Simulated assay, not measured.
Amino acid sequence: MTQDKLDLLIDLHQPNPRQGPGGDAQTELALRLTGLDPAAPLTVADIGCGTGAATLALARLLPQAQITAVDFLPPFLTTLQQRNKAAGVADQVTPLAASMSELPFADAQFDLLWSEGAIYNMGFENGVKNWRRFLKPGGVLVASELTWTTNTRPVELQAFWDAAYSEVATAADKIRVLERHGYSPLGYFVLPETCWRDAYYRPLQAGFNDFLCRHGNSEAARALVAEHEQEIALYEANSMYFGYGVYVARRITFPQTSHLFP
């Protein structure tokens, strides 16, 4: 991706409350499935936090937690800090500009790793495998991931996602990945369509005209809007076949004599 396109993407998405599908109610549901004590002084990392929709929800739901909010785009973190301050949770949240594939964390640093709509950037299997060491024994991972919600789907849709993100798979396949890499699944659910349409796509579409005006209706800006409109149309026509699955899994603790996992 060129820097110019990245800058356009930042400008398009930064004003919006979410940079991907999700919802506060679904964040709360996933947190309940972790079984963690919400009143405990937990250590949390929100990886790929964007402008902080999930971070803010977690700070509200976990009032004693210390949250590290990670994104590789500093402008998103600037907006996150502004929202943290407005919500009165700035003392709970530490922003960190870093790549999710090169996280500067210590082994067994966190009780909870959270990633809504972002783990695909390094691949689901690569993410769950490499992030596991940052969890304390018995710590919990929560990640939402593109998932087939039916066993069969149109050939052209399969071909599109195979080309765009080859790791798209059913929930059963994703759970097997978690189990293969030292996790015990605790829960799974699919984000409802409102998390796509109302929470993500409609605010995004509402900003298209202002975005185009800010960039003089340039060819690059129009091409980016067209890409997003194509994505929206793809989801609208095929939402019965795919969505975001939310996966909740605990890091398994093995005896010291085991050499299965670090």
Results as ranks from 00 to 15, higher is better:
Gln109Pro: 04
Phe105Tyr: 14
Lys174His: 15
Phe134Ala: 02
Gly182Ser: 09
Arg202Leu: 14
Asp210Arg: 14
Arg202His: 10
Val190Cys: 13
Ser101Lys: 11
Gly182Gln: 02
Pro137Leu: 08
Pro203Glu: 01
Phe124Thr: 07
Gly139Cys: 03
Tyr201Ile: 13
Leu146Asn: 06
Asn121Cys: 10
Thr147His: 00
Ala172Val: 13
Gln109Ile: 06
Ala108Val: 02
Val168Lys: 03
Gly182Thr: 02
Gln205Arg: 15
Ala108His: 14
Val155Glu: 15
Glu167Asp: 15
Ser115Trp: 01
Ser99Gln: 12
Glu193Gly: 10
Asn121Asp: 06
Arg132Met: 05
Phe134Ser: 01
Val155Tyr: 03
Asp162Thr: 14
Phe105Met: 08
Asn209Arg: 08
Ser144Phe: 09
Ser144Ile: 04
Glu145Phe: 03
Asp173Gly: 08
Ser115Cys: 07
Pro154Ser: 10
Asp198Ile: 03
Leu103Ser: 11
Glu125Met: 03
Gln109Cys: 02
Glu102Arg: 15
Ala106Glu: 15
Leu96Ser: 07
Asp198Pro: 04
Leu157Ala: 07
Thr94Pro: 03
Gln205Ser: 14
Asp210Ala: 15
Glu125Phe: 04
Ala118Asn: 05
Val140Ile: 14
Leu103Arg: 06
Thr149Glu: 11
Val140Ala: 05
Ala199Glu: 15
Val128Pro: 02
Pro203Trp: 02
Pro203Cys: 05
Thr194Leu: 12
Arg133Cys: 09
Arg176Gly: 09
Ala164Ile: 00
Leu96Gln: 12
Trp161Asn: 08
Phe110Ile: 02
Leu146Val: 09
Val168Thr: 12
Leu146His: 02
Leu113Met: 09
Thr149Asn: 09
Glu193Lys: 15
Arg133Asn: 03
Asn209Trp: 01
Val177His: 04
Glu156Met: 06
Ile175Asp: 04
Met122Ala: 14
Ser99His: 12
Ala164Lys: 11
Val190Ala: 14
Ala106Cys: 10
Val168Phe: 09
Thr147Leu: 00
Leu191Met: 11
Arg176Tyr: 00
Thr150Met: 08
Tyr188Trp: 13
Val168Glu: 00
Phe110Pro: 02
Ala172Trp: 05
Gln205Lys: 15
Phe124His: 13
Arg197Ser: 09
Trp148Ser: 01
Ala98Leu: 06
Ser166Pro: 01
Phe208Trp: 13
Phe208Pro: 02
Pro185Arg: 05
Ala199Trp: 00
Leu113Val: 12
Trp196Ser: 07
Ala169Ser: 13
